[in-house]
Design a protein around this nucleic acid. Sequence first.
DNA 1: TAATGCATGTAACGAGTTACATGATTTG
DNA 2: CAAATCATGTAACTCGTTACATGCATTA
Lengths: 194, 194
Amino acid sequence: MSLPHAILTALLEKPSSGLELTRRFDMSIGYFWSATHQQIYRELGKLEHEGYIRALPSAQPTRGQKKEYEVLPAGRAELARWTAESQDPKPIRDPLLLRLRAAGVVGAEGIDAELRRHLDLHQRQLSEYLEIEKRDFPPDRDTVEDRLRHAVLRAGIDLETFWTRWLSRTLAELEPPTAAAADASTPAEGNGPK
Amino acid sequence: MSLPHAILTALLEKPSSGLELTRRFDMSIGYFWSATHQQIYRELGKLEHEGYIRALPSAQPTRGQKKEYEVLPAGRAELARWTAESQDPKPIRDPLLLRLRAAGVVGAEGIDAELRRHLDLHQRQLSEYLEIEKRDFPPDRDTVEDRLRHAVLRAGIDLETFWTRWLSRTLAELEPPTAAAADASTPAEGNGPK
DNA sequence: TAATGCATGTAACGAGTTACATGATTTG
DNA sequence: CAAATCATGTAACTCGTTACATGCATTA
């Protein structure tokens, strides 16, 4: 039950329409809680029905028309309640790790290509986060809100760093000990190439 | 679509009944792909229906009776196909990060207790993984399968290490700048975000 | 006015979660 | 034999995903 609270947070930061929320989810909040526009519309409907948000009076009630929402006091209270709630961390759930385990049983043929591809993707994500950090968190400003947002971003940075390191190491270890790498541990023998 | 493949992997490692699978999911595979017994029974039914697994002939077809499954050639082929498939990593999806972001808007009252609680949980998980590593991966044995399984475990270890570090650091930074630390950057800033 | 893009929405499905139901086996 | 435990299974619900439908506004 996190999506409604993600939306409340986003709406408190700035009242928006469904599509605007979708776009903002693609950028900031979506980096750690993504959502499609269908999810968002569905949830906006629920939140409005429950009296947590309301459409701004200026918005027309017709179909293709833009409709802006703002958070009502009850919505803010609900968000505060949820924020103070305690909830256990969920265990990891990663298909790539599952794949590796499966590869141990049916053969690891070609798995290194997939690992390299992931390594590349995580490196890109990492540099994107580092860009954001450079742009949005200059060392001077320092409110509590800033620190919280920075901490969240740093979680992203550290996670991507973990993946790139783990993938690099795993690739190196799965690499068949051919050529150069093998020479160090195995002194060159007189025999020519196989 | 990962659960069926998790089950196929587990069954290839050792033919089992539904409850046995559930228990093994609570231990090894479940560390990175958990599942309840209801999910597992449902999926076993599907897999049998599709001809990927079969109940061992010794098993009776009555209700409360144990029923052991084994993987058929088609199941092994399907698992091999899936293993070689490529699939993008999913973005992070973590309620705690969302909470921190929300705390920036509605107030961070009491969030540090939750962070400390998570820190403790992650530290426990980390030492559990380290125990497993010590027990199951002595430095001598070294097949490809061993290396794969060890790599998966190391992902768990590194992830928990990341969390403990990030939580420690975040806690330290949110700590009210009491006494010594506060003097340098005294923000005369009031409160109200807007 | 026809096509394009913007904005909101419906429908159907798959996966995960929670609660509960039922049959078999052990054991007190 | 009653109760506890093992083992399999149904049902109902929520959340996320994919595909598609509808209405409005702009402009070529």
